[in-house]
Nucleic acid binder design. Structure first.
Lengths: 169, 169
DNA sequence: ATCAATCATATTGCGCACAATTAAATGTGA
DNA sequence: TCACATTTAATTGTGCGCAATATGATTGAT
């Protein structure tokens, strides 16, 4: 339960070396090792991918989440905020200010749906639609950072998408 | 190059349906499809994992990045901010306020290294070290959300860690 | 018609994540 | 010893990401 630690240490003092006992590891401590964690590998690689996108997307005046929103809109527009939220698995607290920034940059327009005033319809401007041309080279330029044969991308992607059960929100 | 679009549309008006041409796809447009993107799969699953951790880590009074910092410190403490940054692949702009919050919650102590006043040493408090016991059940409780046989976790984790070249910072 | 429940989005508050900058300490060479 | 580059964190500013809440619109039951 407790470490076989220095008995002199004060009750509120810092611990110099919090060692793990065999009992801890048997109870699950081995699974706490950062280098064994699938979740941290995913978290870390996701952060690093965003960093790799940054210089490419700076040329387009987009952040990575904004680029994702544009990918969705380039596939089909207009869409409501809710449809974007479903496609990106993000909520309105994230998307509303993101879309307002993109509107400020002249890439999209936001307007209430006349048929249902609760909805906000997001549509592409000319500039937003035209930006797709400049984005065409992004996937290939990013892919060159990956140490993965092209024919393994699809299977790995599908494996990762299948890791968690489909949205339970 | 350009869509065969409605010639009547105004120059600044919104585009109803920004279709993709065969020429676009030949130039790389197929790769812009969100559902084909490995990067989005990683980004999305990382967000969802953080959401799954939240209720478990709420019990410990930790966020997911704070939990990661604790994992590192539980393995070995004290450490400098720079060593934490290396281990977590995060920078000081992220870690400094995170560590200050954890200090405010009584989990760590921060002090300058007397031998090199540029360094800040982060050490665990009694409470911070003791929290490891409560964290032991977290990996197992999170893992039950994963649709992955246990013996496939290690290989998949190593595959993801090998996706990008080791830190080039 | 009215009211309650539901729905879609916006707002607020907090905590990352990182670029750019600042500041202080250290090391190095002339 | 005195520049001067380097190292290490902290600070500032911007943009996510989400919980909790608020606002307003719609639907449905009566």
């Amino acid at each position: 339960m407790t470490d076989d630690q220095d008995p002199i240490r004060g009750a509120a003092g810092p611990l110099p070396t919090p060692t793990m006992t065999d009992a801890d590891d048997a109870a699950g401590g081995e699974l706490l090792r950062l280098d064994r964690q699938l979740c941290f590998a995913l978290y870390s690689v996701s952060n690093r991918i965003t960093r790799l996108y940054r210089p490419l997307l700076d040329e387009l005046g987009l952040t990575y989440p904004q680029y994702l929103a544009m990918l969705v809109l380039w596939e089909r527009a207009p869409r409501t905020v809710g449809e974007l939220a479903d496609a990106l698995d993000l909520d309105s607290g994230t998307l509303t200010p993101l879309l307002k920034r993109m509107e400020g940059n002249g890439l999209v327009l936001r307007r209430r749906d006349p048929a249902d005033e609760r909805r906000v319809i997001v549509e592409l401007t000319e500039a937003g639609a035209a930006l797709r041309q400049a984005a065409l080279s992004v996937p290939r330029r990013l892919a060159c950072h990956f140490a993965l044969p092209l024919d393994e991308v699809g299977p790995l992607r599908d494996r990762i998408k299948a890791l968690l059960p489909p949205d339970q929100s």
